[in-house]
């Protein structure tokens, strides 16, 4: 029996060993090399941690995949509210009318233009500037992930042009800048667990 009591004869406690395993902190690290009781205790705790890992793996396998029906049901029930964001005005022919597009629709447009470029996936998009005031300068800032093997610089240049065209087509914003930051280069297909 490696764990007869909470406190060993050397004066150290299981709580200390337990904390040591999680944090690497111990009042007297050298002691752990020489004390057989503490080392047995650590061995037992490590075996338990390994068993805990096994339990987690088994629970995770039993929970199923994110593509299973249980997740489909949950997602179908969510009914996620749209995030309209700010209201971006559009000119009207009749002074009585109020015409606008939502910031959310423009962010989605920017994402879809970026996503349509081979090897690129859009991340966060920001419209910096007061989009609610016609004519005020707006900077578009886009985070981008690029799949490994695709040329970064040509991508960014042609994407900037595609975005400028799409924004000119779908908004009346005064686009002062389009800043693209490549935040990630994706090495290889991610392993599904």
């Amino acid at each position: 029996m490696s764990m007869p009591n909470d406190t060993f004869e050397c004066g150290h406690t299981i709580e200390e060993l337990s904390l040591y395993l999680d944090t690497g902190e111990f009042p007297d690290p050298a002691h752990l090399e020489s004390c057989p009781e503490c080392r047995n205790g650590l061995d037992s705790l490590r075996r338990l941690a390994a068993a805990g890992g096994e339990l987690f793996a088994s629970d995770l396998a039993a929970a199923g995949s994110g593509n299973d029906d249980w997740m489909k049901d949950i997602l179908a029930n969510l009914a996620l509210e749209l995030r309209p964001g700010r209201s971006i005005p559009l000119r009207s022919d009749d002074p009585a009318d109020t015409l606008s597009e939502t910031e959310g629709s423009i962010l989605a447009l920017v994402r879809s233009v970026a996503d349509s470029l081979p090897g690129a996936v859009a991340g966060k998009v920001r419209l910096d500037g007061d989009v609610t005031v016609p004519g005020s300068p707006v900077a578009v800032r886009l985070d981008l992930a690029v799949l490994f093997g695709h040329a970064l610089m040509p991508s960014a240049a042609s994407l900037r042009q595609d975005l400028a065209e799409a924004l000119a087509r779908h908004t009346e914003l005064n686009i002062a800048a389009i800043d693209i930051t490549i935040t990630d280069v994706i090495e290889a297909p991610r392993e599904e667990k």
Binding site: L82, R83, G85, G104, L107, A108, R111, V121, A122, G123, K124, V125, D143, A145, L147, T183, D184, I186, P189, R190
Partner: peptide
């Protein structure tokens, strides 16, 4: 295949 941060950023934008 994209990293969590990309997905979380997009989701926060309403995607």
């Amino acid at each position: 295949v994209v990293p969590d941060a990309i997905l979380a950023g997009r989701a926060a934008d309403g995607d």
